[in-house]
Design a protein around this nucleic acid. Structure first.
Lengths: 202, 202
DNA sequence: TCGGTACCAGACTAGTTGGTCTGGTTCCTA
DNA sequence: TAGGAACCAGACCAACTAGTCTGGTACCGA
């Protein structure tokens, strides 16, 4: 029997993330996480002080991956073209192309589950979510401002809000997929978002 | 002591709706609903067979109000102008103008809470949510098709997906408001949505 | 006036939940 | 090779949860 603490911890986090996204945080029991990650109560509470501590670790890991995903997409968009407006479109295309495999990997976003349970939002977990949202806003707002200044000088658009709209589209699309179980909505929504941005930056 | 069953039932529903939107379904206990609606266990289980039955009643009422809200906005948009494209913009403006009071009445959407808890989504509650989403899609898709055929003949836009994008913007904006507690995001997102549609239907 | 029905109150219960505790195993270091 | 630290197993517990049951009150038709 090997003793590898970090492996067990990761297994717990993976299982918990899946269950929380699937059923929500309150509906996910510690016993369930233990059973499905093939470990024990002693092990669980060795790695996490409480269920709330698990939630915080979960969000921290998820938000870090989310920001990494963002940075990667921005890098790819910048590598594709030097034109600011085309970079914006390329950015959306990165996610549009990956939409199907994204949805097969996770049927929804952890943020949704965490934010709907106020007990968590008040308990320090929301801070990291806000940081991730801010990262998206800051990065995209800059890109959008450059693109709009070039294509639509003198526009009256709030680039922060437009940047948020990308994030909003993701979260809303996750919900839409969830309602019918049809994951195809994610790609369709990203396509629509791109077409809207194309008409704005034409 | 007056005996008015329907009044008590409504009070329970009002309280439960507030609590579920605020804390989520699983995190909302029957005892809590009873306490805050100033009634008793006997009364609660007289009006509702189970907690799940409450959830179903809650969604039914909410979805009906949602569709009524939609129909009202469409009627107002049609009264404002005969031009299809201008109707679309007027429709969004109805919600844009009412955004602040909408957010003060409810800090989030019941759909989000219900959809994140899979136990409910599988238990017949999602059917009514899907019906409401379909109503939005059908109504708006028709409006959008007329507008696009006029302003952008030969376009390649999926009007169903574009119609869904309006719904998606609402749900995503609710989430965004929730993350920071800043309800101003709702109006900002609706403004951005309108500006994007204006550029598309210019 | 009487009996049935809708409505309501609150004690009670069986099952579940997060969390604790004791004991044991592996590994690292001195 | 001894002993401490990290890791893990699972019995156990106190608190809580949805739902039941018994008893009682207002109303309505006969």
């Amino acid at each position: 029997m090997p003793r590898d603490g970090t492996a067990t911890r990761q297994r717990i986090l993976d299982t918990a993330e899946r269950l929380v996204i699937e059923n929500g945080y309150a509906a996910t029991t510690v016993d369930q996480v233990i059973a499905e990650s093939r470990t024990s109560k002693g092990s669980f509470f060795h790695h996490f002080d409480s269920k709330l501590d698990l939630a915080r670790s979960l969000v921290a890991r998820y938000a870090a991956a989310d920001i990494a995903h963002l940075d990667d997409a921005v890098a790819r968009a910048r590598a594709a073209t030097d034109d600011p407006a085309e970079q914006v479109i390329a950015f959306v295309r990165v996610f549009e192309d990956d939409a199907d495999e994204l949805m097969s990997a996770q049927s929804s976003c952890l943020y949704v589950s965490i934010l709907t349970e106020r007990q968590l939002a008040d308990a320090g977990t929301s801070k990291q979510i806000v940081e991730a949202i801010t990262a998206w806003r800051t990065t995209l707002s800059t890109m959008l401002r450059a693109a709009l200044d070039q294509r639509r000088p003198g526009h009256d658009i709030d680039t922060d809000a437009l940047a948020d709209h990308v994030f909003v589209t993701f979260e809303g699309a996750f919900l839409l997929c969830r309602s019918t179980g049809d994951n195809g909505h994610m790609r369709a929504q990203l396509t629509v978002l791109r077409q809207l941005l194309e008409s704005l930056l034409a």
